[in-house]
Design a protein around this nucleic acid. Structure first.
Length: 470
DNA sequence: TGAAATGTTGGGGCG
DNA sequence: ACGCCCCAACATTTC
């Protein structure tokens, strides 16, 4: 018998429950169907499309090495699956679950439709340590605070061991695949140069990155994670988003080599990822509206000039601009800096966090609806377990603390490279002869700060206090 | 996973 | 030697 394995965001052969289940039953037809309009309002951003292209390329190659062909199609998913069932004589369709609201709705529909047609339809958990509907507090309610959520996860049975790559048999029916290029996922203007020099998509590379990180860096993660000028984070987020590696693989790799206590700070980050997915599942409206309803009337500023300056990395605050340019150039930003630029957008510029979420969505290779939503609602203070309204990052202090030698700023804001450490996080305070010696004229090579942080902070406190008080 | 404002303490300069 | 002041360093409170 033949089973269609519908790939969506699980581009790996290892620890892939749908694939393994299908492989034990007979021939398989691995399929990817490109249907961007079915993703709803949060369809693939530009950077995500780039990764998706290369991810599919890699997956197709891994199948080819084993004598199988990844079938690529585009168009209405249900119709495509029905057509493939006809073409191949398949009697089953298996896939791994996704948790975005629009996707859950679509998949439920597809499942019931195919079941009515007597197809064996099964979905599996490949992308989370625990399913959202299985985790709740004593009142049977979803957790809304991270720490009790995390403590609770640690009382549950350990996540399942990752599955090996199954022995696979191709189906006897040959079916046509569209050309990967026909999906037009790559940019027509060549803005992806920086991205390709920094990233190698694909499950094989994911595993190399994991092994490299797990060797030693994972042990000093709690210190190094805050240093954008150091290489101390895992860089696994895009691989995780596209399912080129699974959280179970990361979890067990860490614990196989190290003690729990030594890797807890890193595993806790997988906990945040779980938390984000659980929140998205239980509060499906949060990508577009604040979880805390009192924030709906927050007096956000419409300021397209300031938004643009933020997006382009021209705010005049070096750590903010460095982060935004790293994002634009490489499709990724260090998490410490994500918090700093997020706080700056929301609290210094008083621009709606949704604008930030949208920009990140388009530019991040790891753009993930659950994580992105959690992050932005956290920084804006309107989400679950969010930063309190008065927590406002000082971009100068953050720069001095976490980029003390200014290396991160020098890398991404090269026009400031010649400034001494003392002034590199606050060039507008540098004596004019220092600026001159460094070849910097504010307003020419590098902008004046678009807001005064001290004033902006006071204004933010007033605005946020108003929301809070009512 | 914050930072500023305010409070407290103690050493040192100085009359 | 003493009281007084200044202020850095640290602690606590507040936003």
């Amino acid at each position: 018998m033949t089973t269609i394995v519908w790939f969506r965001q699980d581009f790996r052969l290892e620890d892939n429950p749908a694939l393994t289940a299908a492989a034990t039953k007979g021939g398989i037809v691995p399929v990817f169907i490109y249907a961007p309009y079915e993703e709803g309002e949060w369809s693939y951003g530009g950077a995500s499309k780039w990764w998706l292209h290369h991810s599919l390329e890699n997956l197709a190659e891994e199948f080819l090495e084993r004598g199988l062909q990844l079938i690529i199609r585009q168009g209405d998913t249900l119709k495509t699956l029905q057509s493939l069932i006809k073409e191949t004589g398949a009697t089953a369709v298996y896939w791994n679950r996704r948790y975005e609201p629009a996707i859950l709705e679509r998949d439920t529909h597809i499942k019931s439709y195919l079941k009515d047609a007597e197809i064996d339809v099964q979905s599996f958990n490949a992308n989370l340590l625990y399913e959202p509907w299985t985790v709740h507090n004593k009142q049977k309610k979803p957790f809304q605070v991270f720490t009790p959520f995390w403590k609770h996860l640690l009382t549950l049975p350990a996540p399942a061991e990752p599955l090996h790559v199954p022995k696979m048999q191709k189906s006897s029916q040959r079916v046509e695949s569209e050309n990967l290029e026909s999906l037009a996922l790559l940019p027509t203007i060549h803005w992806d140069k920086g991205i390709s020099t920094h990233w190698k998509p694909g499950a094989k590379h994911a595993k190399e990155v994991l092994m490299g990180f797990n060797k030693a860096a994972v042990l000093v993660y709690s210190e190094e994670r805050n240093r954008p000028d150091h290489p101390g984070v895992s860089h696994l987020s895009p691989y995780l988003h596209f399912g080129e590696i699974s959280p179970r693989m990361i979890w067990h790799a860490a614990l196989q080599k190290h003690s729990f206590i030594d890797v807890e700070p890193y595993l806790r980050q997988l906990g945040w990822r779980e938390f984000a997915h659980h929140l998205l599942y239980h509060f499906p409206k949060t990508p577009n509206s604040p979880l805390r309803v009192d924030f709906k009337k927050f007096p956000w500023m419409k300021n397209s000039a300031a938004l643009k300056a933020w997006q382009k990395g021209k705010t005049g605050y070096p750590i903010v601009d460095a982060g935004m340019r790293q994002l634009w150039t490489t499709g990724w930003m260090h998490n410490r800096v994500r918090m700093v630029v997020g706080s700056f957008l929301v609290k210094d510029l008083l621009i709606n966090w949704i604008e930030g979420a949208r920009w990140f969505w388009d530019t991040l290779l790891d753009a993930d609806l659950a994580n992105n939503t959690l992050g932005w609602q956290w920084v804006a203070g309107c989400g679950a377990d969010a930063a309190p309204y008065f927590r406002i990052f000082n971009p100068i202090t953050q720069g001095e603390k976490f980029d003390p030698e200014g290396e991160y700023v020098r890398q991404w804001v090269p026009e400031l490279a010649a400034l001494p450490n003392e002034w590199i996080q606050k060039p507008w305070e540098a004596p004019s002869e220092v600026l001159r010696a460094a070849g910097v004229t504010l307003g020419r090579e590098y902008p004046h700060p678009i807001v005064d942080h001290k004033t902006a902070r006071t204004k933010a406190l007033e605005a946020f206090q108003e929301v809070r008080g009512s």
